[in-house]
């Protein structure tokens, strides 16, 4: 069960009317290493992993949904008042023809989301290594979007999201360490 708080995890501000940035951001909405893929991947793995790390997958999977909501807000703000002409200039004409200004789960190149972006091998170490890789890929994607964006307010939100990916990768690495830990060996801090 989830409890919903009607606010964003981090405030989203966009300072320039630049629908082109929406085209880049949609990568983190419906792309292979985006927030939707992340949430679905982690939440689904919870059923076939040792108890000790289920809570971590719940926490991070839930946070990814909060990130998805931030990305959606960014895309919405960047496109809601754009004219068809502006969308065309931004390379979003094909999107407009199919969806108007509705968001859709596809990547920056318009490829629709697919479940094949995620894996569930059922082997705990394998799945956690996929999670670590996914976090580093998301971190890199945020860097490439920040490199393309000249909107300081938008970048502020993207920087927050990128920092969270660093933390997630750290926690998944710790989860691997927990599963490697030998049974009955006491560890004191």
């Amino acid at each position: 069960m989830w409890i919903y708080e009607k606010k964003l995890q981090y405030p989203v501000r966009v300072s320039t009317c630049n629908p082109k940035l929406a085209k880049y951001l949609i990568e983190q909405y419906g792309g292979a290493d985006g927030e939707l893929a992340a949430a679905l991947r982690y939440l689904n793995q919870r059923y076939t992993i040792p108890d000790k790390v289920i809570g971590l997958l719940t926490d991070i999977g839930t946070e990814e949904l909060a990130h998805l909501e931030m990305i959606a807000t960014m895309v919405y703000k960047l496109t809601k008042d754009a004219t068809p002409e502006q969308l065309k200039e931004a390379g979003l004409d094909a999107h407009y023809v199919d969806h108007d200004r509705a968001l859709f789960y596809h990547n920056a190149a318009g490829v629709p989301f697919t479940a094949t972006y995620i894996q569930a091998k059922g082997d705990p170490i394998t799945d956690l290594y996929e999670d670590i890789a996914a976090e580093e890929k998301a971190r890199a994607t945020y860097q490439w979007i920040i490199n393309m964006s000249d909107d300081p307010d938008l970048n502020d939100g993207l920087r927050f999201l990128r920092e969270r990916e660093i933390i997630h990768a750290q926690r998944f690495r710790e989860a691997v360490e927990i599963l490697k830990e030998e049974r009955d060996r006491k560890k004191f801090f």
């Binding site: 981090y10 945020y142 860097q143 920040i146 490199n147 393309m148 964006s149 000249d150 300081p152 970048n155 920087r159 927050f160 999201l161 990128r162 920092e163 969270r164 660093i166 933390i167 750290q170």
Partner: peptide, 18 residues
Amino acid sequence: KKGTLWKIFYDPYYGPYE
């Protein structure tokens, strides 16, 4: 604001326009 409680993990990234 920073996205982490822990100083050791804070590693902000800025783009060429910033």
